[in-house]
Design a protein around this nucleic acid. Structure first.
Lengths: 334, 334
DNA sequence: TCCTACGATTAAAACGTATCAATCACAATC
DNA sequence: GATTGTGATTGATACGTTTTAATCGTAGGA
């Protein structure tokens, strides 16, 4: 009834538990017929290995932790898809943690990862406190930063150049004849927001404009709801810029909805550009211009780096990879 | 160095390992000052409990498995948000498995869950094979069906009435004067698709029409991409109905894009309604009519049932909960 | 025939925690 | 002063696996 262990399998196959373990972990070490007998016993008894016992004895598990800022954002589900594909190819399970941008929840997720003795952690940190991650590394848990450049060498990181992306977006807006520009950002602690704003300012400067001209609006979240609130605020202030750059597409879609509801025409009255090029950007009321990132690849590459670090700790060389974004022009900036 | 165990904590606090374990699991059983001493030692040493050892000894873990059909679908991320909130409130971690509609991947995820000895499993099954789930139950793993009615009593299930929902959608289309109706569904194995179609047929019958009139198109996936392909197929066949009901919003958004690209006007030439009322439905080019489900609540309630079953196995009474959907009318059916 | 070598298998010892019966200290009761 | 009771703590054991050294059996070389 209860649970069938390696011993039961051994008994039925007429071998010792050690041999069963070998069949499970180093099948090449055991003779053909014994192996067949053991495999038959496993099947007959419906044995499934006790992962915890295995982890306990082996000192490490076959799981990795993935901590993201907002699983409701298609950007992160795409990343997660890439992560999961690579992980399951290599026999790893993924524990998903959603920080929702809350430092406390992120902390709790990392604690869970540590308790589960995950082999490694993939994280898009929600702030710049690298010390927590170092504490994980001290525990022997590899950490790879996702969508975040390395603060220093000695770690792997996979990111997309957000400064360039921000600059692309804003010089596109300027090229379209925009004069008064606004930036709708997210929480100040989120690096992506800062970098994209910096890129925006650089583009302004490059066009001979004062970077201080950029009207900035920082929302507490990067969701469609927050975007709609941003639009309402902009409308209430009677200071509507003629071009808006949003830190991500969810914000932009929310802004778009808010503007259209108020009778503001996009792009005639206001040009609008988002960031991430999520699937829905091209399907919106007015299709949304955006900055595309190699999202799925980000997840894949990060996971490959992490598992390489886990599986070949001696030969592994840390890498910091930086992809470049692409501008995607659609109706909202024409 | 490596890892600090309960013994190290015990030594530093001058107590036995058993006491440390008590501090961790039944703090009320241990005297105030000893507890304080132990907690200090835990903090000083940076001890974190070894989840695997704990699971091994206790015979059960503090994790649950969540298996969904498509994590790229906002419907499921909403469900997952509800699950995660309840789980973390009660100190459980969630292992997420994405079956992508593939039976094989679902199977593999369930195997991972079994190996990890999760306490229970929440699953939106991708087909009707309940035997696999019974095998989990034999192992002492509770299973709650999510967005799927129970096939029999003796299990918990939380669902939304898809037949009603399908009927709502189609009678709305009929009420708008639709004549030739089409249904864009997903894989035949997915129950939601069947039920929504059945509801559609019932609505036709109720209106005195032949249910066989429903033009049916079954796509291999329920994604926006598949929806766009569906639109292309409908256009190529020159048999475009004047009203389309799609099995979910992603399909509908894809269909919408496909139709608009071909110059078909929505809703003038073709009325269109989706299902789920995801956030993006209201933001699309032509805002999408849909059938709303209490998604987040679905996740919450399912998790509460599961954890009740896990934590109070003796007093727990299985429940089959069925929510009702709501019709949301927008531009695409006006 | 004896010895060596080698491949296949085994026996036993961990891994870090939870649990439970046993022990202890000490106060309350007779 | 002996007994009982109570609350706090301890010691020992078991959970299911992996791993290492040891053992076994057999074949090949001398």
């Amino acid at each position: 009834m209860g649970t069938v262990s390696i011993k039961d399998v051994a008994a039925r196959a007429g071998v010792s538990p050690g041999t069963v373990s070998n069949v499970l972990n180093r099948p090449e070490k055991v003779a053909g017929d014994t192996r067949a007998r053991v495999e038959a016993a496993i099947r007959d008894l419906g044995f499934v290995r006790h992962g915890s016992a295995s982890t306990l004895r082996a000192g490490h598990s076959r799981t990795i932790g993935l901590s993201v800022i907002d699983i409701g954002n298609p950007f992160f589900t795409d990343v997660a898809a890439g992560v999961e594909d690579v992980a399951s190819e290599r026999g790893y399970a993924v524990i998903l943690g959603n920080s929702s941008g809350s430092r406390m929840k992120e902390e709790r997720n990392l604690l869970v990862f540590a308790e589960q003795r995950v082999r490694g952690v993939l994280i898009t940190p929600s702030d710049e406190d690298g010390a927590r991650l170092d504490r994980l590394r001290e525990r022997g848990i590899s950490v790879v930063l996702v969508d975040h450049p390395a603060e220093r060498s000695g770690q792997c990181a996979v990111a997309v150049n957000d400064v360039t992306g921000g600059a692309m977006a804003v010089s596109h807006l300027l090229g379209g004849g925009a004069d008064r520009l606004g930036y709708v950002g997210g929480p100040a602690a989120i690096r992506q927001c800062q970098d994209r704003r910096r890129g925006a300012e650089q583009a302004l400067a490059a066009a001979g404009r004062d970077p201080g001209d950029l009207l900035e609006l920082a929302m507490p979240a990067m969701t469609a709801r927050a975007g709609q609130q941003a639009a309402e605020k902009l409308l209430a202030d009677r200071s509507l810029p003629d071009a808006l750059f949003c830190a991500n597409d969810l914000l932009a879609l929310g802004v778009l909805r808010g503007l259209l509801q108020a009778g503001v025409r996009v792009p005639d009255d206001v040009s609008l550009i988002g960031y991430d090029d999520i699937d829905f950007a091209s399907a919106s009321t007015v299709s949304l211009s955006s900055v595309r990132q190699p999202t799925y690849k980000l997840g894949r590459v990060a996971t490959e780096l992490l598992l390489d670090e886990c599986d070949n700790p001696d030969t592994h060389a840390h890498q910091q990879i930086m992809f470049q974004p692409d501008l995607v022009v659609r109706e909202s900036t024409r």
